[in-house]
């Protein structure tokens, strides 16, 4: 772990061109260690595309991505995850027909190095249950350990997803709209949870809910039409006339 405040993730001129449509154009993003950084912007601004580019789910047309100072522009998604940069998805991403405990356990089992061992009994995974329950405890799901994930209410699914992500002990957490589709109470819970887990890591999140962002994030990057419109703390960004115009269309 490096010092707080140094760059953990950086993009230089990150561009994605879908056959002439520039979804992301020349984005220079700088995420500092130990911060909660938000990526906001109107629909279609390219937020999720940036996420997909960062986690290598799609390849950039040009530009570079540096993670902990290393160029990962051509890395594969699984490699990026193994280096400690783990993402969540816009729509809750659980393994629906696995139990809550199994969901987390799948994430924990890779470091055992037995994930290709098809001749070994799955009893060898039982040693992970303690750690899995600890993680579930953090998101108040320990009592639901044997529930099949598909049966959880939406907010709980997102909590499970977060526990699964934390199982990898990621250095950099990428959360794609963690409060999307949630009721008011669930939003409060998730915000507290993010604050809690961000104590030891860096978080980059896409978020629509501005009150969440105002409350939680030190730095905010506003995207519009694939380019950075403004950047800074909430107080500064929220009074920027260009941002206001992009969001509510205030006339000049």
């Amino acid at each position: 772990m490096g010092a707080v405040g140094e760059l953990v993730l950086e993009t230089r001129g990150l561009t994605k061109d879908f056959r002439g449509f520039v979804a992301v154009g020349g984005v220079d993003l700088k995420v500092r260690r130990g911060t909660i950084h938000a990526l906001i912007g109107p629909n279609g601004a390219g937020k999720t595309t940036v996420f997909n580019l960062l986690t290598k789910f799609i390849q950039p047309s040009s530009g570079a991505i540096l993670y902990r100072g290393r160029d990962i522009t051509r890395s594969r998604p699984a490699d990026v995850a193994r280096q400690g940069m783990v993402r969540s998805f816009q729509v809750s991403a659980v393994f629906p027909n696995l139990t809550v405990l199994e969901n987390v356990r799948v994430a924990l089992q890779r470091p055992l190095g037995t994930s290709f061992h098809f001749w070994k009994s799955d009893r060898s995974l039982q040693g992970l249950h303690g750690r899995a329950l600890e993680l579930l405890e953090q998101v108040d799901l320990a009592t639901h350990r044997d529930t099949v994930a598909v049966e959880l209410p939406y907010g709980r699914k997102r909590a499970l997803e977060l526990a699964t992500t934390l199982a990898l002990d990621p250095e950099l957490l990428l959360l794609d709209e963690p409060t999307q589709g949630m009721g008011h109470e669930d939003v409060g819970r998730v915000v507290e949870l993010i604050r809690k887990v961000a104590a030891q890591r860096t978080v980059l999140m896409v978020e629509h809910n501005l009150s969440v962002v105002a409350d939680l994030c030190q730095t905010i990057t506003v995207l519009q039409r694939g380019t950075i419109l403004a950047e800074g703390p909430y107080a500064q960004v929220s009074t920027d006339p260009r941002v206001l115009e992009a969001y509510i269309g205030v006339p000049e």
């Binding site: 789910f57 995850a81 998805f89 991403a93 393994f95 890779r110 990898l168």
Partner: peptide, 12 residues
Amino acid sequence: ENEPRALSLGYD
């Protein structure tokens, strides 16, 4: 169950 999720957990 969820291929992109398995990928994002670091499984090739």
